[in-house]
Nucleic acid binder design. Structure first.
Length: 879
RNA sequence: GGGCGGAUAGCUCAGCGGUAGAGCACCUGCCUUACACGCAGGGGGUCACAGGUUCGAAACCUGUUCCGCCCA
């Protein structure tokens, strides 16, 4: 990049370094056995997807961890990959085909699946290219896809073993059916939303006498499939009715009245209609009472032949007609508005139809028990830990998992049925003939839930069921970083399958991030159109800025809002450090070789900045280990901007001018601190830090494989902090006085400084040059407080730590105004003094407060006492 | 109905036992040869409410109100 440019432009830089890193193989683990291991498997995004801001945040977090641990010298693996996303991908390709007027069923299964593969090869890499743009330092040689040969083998292996262990079974049960996707879904793929519906009270005439039973329902159309009416056995209102029969109107079926404790007597009339084929609770009642199951709604959401006159009508049309027809028979008692929870398909939003069908299930409870234990014992740790409770309560009430999906794209279920005798074989290899009768075998048409293969991701990607070197080396993985909304879908299932099949937990830490919302706090969504495309942001501000902005406003488990201003601020930060390094380089003679740092007789300013750097190193190392990325980012941001740029660099300008002999020492410190802080910043902003690190004298090929900074041992750092602290305070007070009367920055004026002690006077005078330049003084006269110097009346006086400073300017000072200003300062100081006095007079405080707190109060008292005195004197002088 | 999270400066958020912080926005003055994507200075907050614990509470405990999420 151009030497002269005063502005940092990220684009060419980011592209250049990613290629450099990749070509040098830095993304690969070092495969050393004698160093700690650190591994992450990337949560695989959908192949069909494009990167959203949530991915950007998650991948930034992972990259921070990976780069940090890599710089610590650990054997570090970040494994990338994508997920085949069964239903989603199938829908997408179907849509594409439809635009060419082709229906999936016309093509046939094999051709369609080929189409999807072609689509995947062509477009499926898009999201990975975006991950690259973000700067993710993943090992591309280990890229995996859930439908790769090896991973598919793992899926078959797991299915067969679970089946053999009796943990997978097939049966007719009520499942959540999406009439639009035409497939069964698991319970957690259903999203519940409150909707206003009508509660219809329907009279079922008694079949064996006069009268009727009134039942209430929100789904009147299901009455066509009713096979009983149920009441609570203890409900006295209905005591005489149990065992009698009613006639279901419209369909004219005679059904019994049964007693079941499931019925809530407080709800509706206390009598409920029972539709075993269309409601999960009714299904169970049906099992208990051996009721008939009559399916009146079909897979496509229209009525079946069992719906009589309503056959082929849409389910909602049927609802309207049934109510109308019942009304004309005088059988609708009333309709009430009712807000109730309605299930919707997570993928397409269609209202779920509970339907009786033949599906495969995983018996989850035996798998859940050890998974629950592992978390309870702390082998798997959630960050933040409150999510452990959410995990636990879900796992404790776990229900069986419907895993078959009536689609074509995915892992086909390795179950084979004999065409002749209907025997079932579940096997790793397709059997050629039926064992029982020798008939030919047909494979199950369905595929597995995508989450079934995702559950194996931490070990299938490393080669399981083979005992590969990768599996031995990198499993269990170190951290799984993901959003809290897929704890049930994914995290819990990985823990279950991981423990069951490898005998070990799949990861040590589950690190959870929140949702990235839009600037108004709304969830980003395609339909609202409020989504932010990270690629646009990168285009505008660079990946570093996006990363830094996301990290600065994130905390584990918390939602955050995306804001463009934050990204802007982060890009300004990139520009700031670019210019700081530019300053260093401009001052660097050709072929300058930094001196080894002189830590024996160092300059106070150097010790000060080195100590501040040490503190930053310590804080950041701790915070990164605790996954507090936001805190760590803030620490380096503040250090570089406030301490390094605003103070240290400004001080070096003066020192290099006033004390040319020190130039090599100054430059060496400037370079050292820049280099170390670039390393600290590197996990957050990899590109700009590499660019700048390379442009300074350095050892090694790349900052990304440089060593993570350690605190350097120093001497005299406490004194340096004290002195520089006082100097800063004095300079701020002096500048404040100038601003008070709007002095032009260039105009030099006289200052008088009065110290509370000789020590302080000495300390100030050590930094006399710096003070003079930074307050733009023409001259400064230095005094001790009791010297009895002539006190100039035409002055502005301000308070600093350890003394006071006065600006002398004949004619520019309004004495009355100054007296008022001093009085205000005095009042302030007095009230602060009172507060500390009060505290120190309290015996309880002196006895119970920690030593440091009392010491601090004591020194504050000292400071305020003398400040009050100084201000009093000054005020009297002005009278 | 159960559980969880949030309520702090105009906005977005950090702090989570020792005198209230940042970024942006606002006001004043500056193109001071690293940076105007900047510098210096400034204004602005009974830290939702009510009790309690403590020498000391924005922070810990209890309850209340509002907002959001998850589960049933």
């Amino acid at each position: 990049m151009s030497e002269l440019s005063a502005q940092y432009s990220p684009h060419e830089v980011e592209k250049k370094w990613y290629t450099f890193w990749k070509d040098h193989g830095y993304f690969k683990p070092n495969m050393k056995n004698d160093v700690p291991m650190f591994s992450i498997v990337m949560p695989p995004p959908n192949v069909t997807g494009v990167l959203h801001v949530g991915h950007a945040l998650n991948n930034t977090w992972q990259d921070i961890l990976i780069r940090f641990h890599r710089m610590l010298g650990e054997n570090t693996l970040w494994l990338p990959g994508t997920d085949h996303a069964g239903i989603h991908t199938q829908m997408k390709v179907e849509e594409l085909l439809r635009s060419r007027n082709i229906e999936r069923r016309e093509l046939g299964r094999d051709t369609f699946v080929q189409e999807v593969w072609q689509w995947k090869e062509k477009y499926g890499g898009e999201i990975l290219r975006q991950v690259e743009k973000l700067g993710a330092s993943v090992d591309w040689e280990r890229l995996r896809f859930t439908m790769d040969e090896g991973l598919s083998k793992a899926v078959t292996e797991v299915f067969v073993r679970l089946y053999e262990e009796g943990l997978i079974y097939r049966g007719h049960y009520i499942t959540n059916w999406c009439v639009s996707c035409r497939t069964a879904l698991s319970d957690i793929e259903v999203e519940h939303e409150d909707e206003t519906g009508a509660l219809t009270y329907i009279r079922y005439p008694m079949a064996d006498g006069p009268g009727y039973v009134t039942v209430a329902t929100t789904r009147p159309e299901t009455m066509l499939g009713d096979t009983a009416v149920a009441v609570h056995p203890d409900d006295s209102r209905w005591a005489g009715f149990v065992g009698r029969q009613v006639r279901i109107p419209l369909i004219n079926r005679i059904v019994p009245i049964i007693a079941d404790t499931y019925v809530d007597p407080a709800y509706g009339t206390g009598a409920v209609k029972v539709t075993p084929a269309h409601d999960p609770n009714d299904f169970q009642m049906g099992q208990r009472h051996d009721l008939q199951q009559i399916q009146v709604i079909g897979e496509d959401g229209t009525m079946t032949e069992y719906a009589g006159a309503y056959q082929s009508l849409d389910r909602y049309e049927t609802r309207r007609r049934v109510v109308k027809d019942l009304e004309s028979l005088g059988l609708v008692e009333k309709q009430e508005d009712l807000v109730h929870s309605v299930g919707h398909c997570e993928k397409c939003g269609t209202t779920i139809e509970p339907l009786l069908s033949l599906q495969w299930f995983v018996k989850v409870e035996p798998l859940a028990r050890p998974a629950l234990e592992a978390v309870r014992r702390g082998e798997v740790r959630f960050v933040p830990d409150r999510f452990e409770k959410i995990y636990t309560s879900w796992m404790e009430n776990i229900r069986d998992w419907c895993i078959s999906r009536q689609i074509w794209w995915g892992h086909r279920i390795p179950a084979y049925y004999c065409v002749e005798c209907e025997s079932v074989v579940v096997a790793r290899q397709a059997p050629s003939r039926c064992d029982v009768c020798g008939g030919s075998m047909r494979q199950d048409d369905d595929v597995l839930d995508t989450w079934f293969s995702s559950a194996l991701w931490p070990f299938s990607t490393l080669g399981w069921p083979e005992k590969t070197q990768d599996l031995q080396m990198f499993y269990p993985t170190s951290v799984l970083s993901t959003a809290y909304d897929i704890i049930f879908f994914w995290v819990s299932r990985m823990i279950m399958q991981g423990i069951h099949f490898t005998g070990e937990k799949p990861f040590e830490t589950v690190l959870l991030h929140g949702l990235v919302r839009d600037s108004q706090g709304r969830k980003m969504s395609k339909s609202v159109g409020n989504g932010v495309d990270p690629m646009d942001v990168i285009e505008q501000y660079g990946a570093d800025a996006l990363r830094m902005a996301l990290v600065l406003s994130s905390a584990p488990g918390n939602d955050q809002r995306y804001s463009d201003e934050r990204v802007q601020a982060a890009s300004h930060f990139a520009n700031k450090i670019y210019n700081a390094v530019r300053y260093v380089r401009i001052n660097l003679p050709d072929n300058f070789v930094p001196d080894p740092l002189n830590l024996d007789t160092p300059h106070i300013e150097d010790v000060w900045i080195m100590h501040k750097l040490n503190q930053t190193v310590e804080k950041m190392t701790n915070w990164l280990q605790e996954f507090e990325f936001g805190q760590a980012a803030r620490a380096i941001y503040d250090f570089l901007w406030d301490d390094y740029c605003d103070w240290y660099i400004e001080l070096t300008k003066i020192r290099m001018r006033e004390e040319p002999r020190q130039i090599p020492q100054v430059l060496s410190t400037l370079i050292h601190v820049a280099e170390q802080s670039l390393k600290l910043l590197h996990p957050f902003m990899p590109f700009v830090t590499e660019e700048l690190w390379q442009s300074l004298p350095h050892n090694g090929e790349s900052i990304m494989v440089a060593e993570w900074p350690k605190p350097l041992s120093l001497t005299g750092q406490d004194r340096a902090m004290e002195i520089v602290g006082r100097v800063q305070s004095l300079i701020r007070a002096g500048r404040n006085l100038r601003a008070e009367i709007n002095l032009p920055p260039g105009q030099r004026v006289q200052f008088v400084c009065v110290a509370d002690s000789f020590q302080i006077l000495e300390d100030w005078r050590k930094e006399e040059h710096a003070i003079r330049e930074l307050v733009k003084a023409s001259t400064i006269s230095w005094h001790m407080k009791d010297e009895g110097i002539a006190k100039p009346r035409h002055a502005l006086t301000g308070m600093a730590l350890g003394g006071s400073v006065s600006l002398l300017l004949e004619g520019a000072v309004d004495l009355e105004k100054e007296a008022n200003r001093v009085r205000k300062l005095l009042e302030q100081a007095q009230s602060e003094l009172d507060r500390v006095q009060r505290q120190l007079k309290d015996r309880q405080f002196r006895e119970r407060a920690p030593e440091q707190v009392v010491a601090k109060a004591l020194s504050q008292r000292e400071e305020f006492v003398s400040r009050v005195m100084r201000l009093k004197e000054r005020w009297e002088d002005l009278q």
